[in-house]
Design a protein around this nucleic acid. Sequence first.
DNA 1: TTGTACGCGTTATCAC
DNA 2: GTGATAACGCGTACAA
Lengths: 351, 351
Amino acid sequence: MNPLHDITIKDIAQRLNVSVSTVSRALRGSTDIKKETRELILQVADELNYRPNPIALSLKDKKTKVIGVMVQEIANNYCSATIAGIEDYANKMGYQVLISQSHEKYDVEVTNLHLLASRRVDGIIITLSNETKNAAHLQDLIDKGIPVVMFDRVCEYLPSHKVIVDDCEGSYNATEHLIQQGYKRIAHLTISPSLAITQRRLKGYKDALKAYGIKTKKEWIIHCDFDPGHMEKDVRNLLLGPYKPDAIFSSVERLSMVCLKVMKQLNLKVPDDVAIAGFSDNPVSGFLSPALTSVAQPTFEIGQHAAALLISQIETKEKPKEYTTVQLKTRLDIRESSLAKKQMPADALQE
Amino acid sequence: MNPLHDITIKDIAQRLNVSVSTVSRALRGSTDIKKETRELILQVADELNYRPNPIALSLKDKKTKVIGVMVQEIANNYCSATIAGIEDYANKMGYQVLISQSHEKYDVEVTNLHLLASRRVDGIIITLSNETKNAAHLQDLIDKGIPVVMFDRVCEYLPSHKVIVDDCEGSYNATEHLIQQGYKRIAHLTISPSLAITQRRLKGYKDALKAYGIKTKKEWIIHCDFDPGHMEKDVRNLLLGPYKPDAIFSSVERLSMVCLKVMKQLNLKVPDDVAIAGFSDNPVSGFLSPALTSVAQPTFEIGQHAAALLISQIETKEKPKEYTTVQLKTRLDIRESSLAKKQMPADALQE
DNA sequence: TTGTACGCGTTATCAC
DNA sequence: GTGATAACGCGTACAA
């Protein structure tokens, strides 16, 4: 017997002198089949360690039981954590996951989506690349009958389910936490004002200040260029300038890191001199910098929800009448050492 | 025209009133075919946006152009960074990557390897789970004719290509760096002494001390339990005990982090009070803690090499006569602020 | 209850 | 040069 040869129903049929269809029936648990025959077949199948060939099934049924996932970079922590959630749910439902990366390039995204489609994946979960400005390529997929679910960087008007995070609330909570700790001169570091994410996080910050009767100050809302050099300069200017804050809420992890670095250079302590809170993708960051209060994204749950929405759509085989947008809550990670000494009773502040 | 219907060579054939075999030939670039016919076919194929169905090809050729990757956790930074390297090379060669996780469980590893095999992946790249003590399940795959390449946590005696990192040299370099910075009381924090990785990294540490004529001290080689609580206690004992070091070389990232945390609690400064160098998986850690000198793993290259070895084996279709073990060098990331003031000329030390 | 024949999309091997 | 046909592995409608 050739070990390189996968065994098929044909092999079992030959061995038992029955037809392939009998074997097929027995394996599929069809009722109308003689009990002895079936048990014999099942026994031999087990003996030969038979595994149905999913490729033959795919060809027949036009279903691959594979879902495609398109992210910017698999090495990006946010992405891989989300993929873990997708895998979790998908595997439970008998699906495998094929991963593809856009490397933040629109062209690559288009090309690789084609590749996934030509692999006949049953559906696609995607977070858009930086460069992607329109969703025509995704509309194409949907038109071809391939279900699409978006997460994180979604395209509002695309007819698909979406999974996002309540940035605004996350920002609000982080800012509120700083306020409740007794800080009043709270700056907000963020990135390009044109991004939707920037706007939502800025809103949460403003709303929190407003709710506690603190005036917003232009000088404390800083839109940094994403270039690391610029970032450092901006942070340094803020910390050394006339409007030195006593706390900073940063909208992206990178900016929190830059803050830590610059503060170290300036010999400032966190949180005693300036407290920091900010969004964080990396579970290590909290451990590394226990002074940091972070708004953690529920990445695993995002993945699970996305997979659930996709698979449900795949298996009902119809375009949904309406598309749902799942909005998940962030989690505020407050670490002991991020609690400053200057803390005062929260109710004293309420007045 | 039904948009849900993938177009096939049959469609093209019908449209041009030729047979499917003619279309197939034209598409495959066969020589014996009339030039006009071919061009017509190519044109229509392009027009209809024809994509060959890889599933049909797989069924016929028993090749899926998919490679399976088995890691502990995709959300683990080391793993996802390696996968990025695998993807890079594999995609260039026209392969897609199917990822599977063992979650550090032997049983799950076995089950999911079966799943990959039954998906008919052309080959498998794997790093073993913690629990895996033997490689019988991998030997099975190899016996079935599925090429296997191992990386990181490899099994020495398995007949497969392997990609590993020169831990010993990495340890040596880090320790040497500390010595050259002027440190002499260098402790080594590490984990279970029974692990191969522990032994290799310990050896590099010892070798470096020896090379510079520094005696090894038992009290400075600490095998910590992997439990976080124990780790902290061990580190605290070291720093407060009679054999307080002036530098620490830690064999795993986690221990470096614990050091930073405990030192902060004790109000000790890095590197002024105690310098730290250690292995690191996470690119963020260096940024977060600029005082840390880290031994960085060439994860991307590990992935690329593993994929290259696997694909080459897949495409030659024969079992290799001998198996290669690629051993990659680590990279020592020295950051400005990790250079202590106590630095003295290296040559003064050589005497 | 079981066997035969077909189709999924493609290529290779014939025959014309 | 081109067309018809078998084969890959499976499930199933149909025939027996």
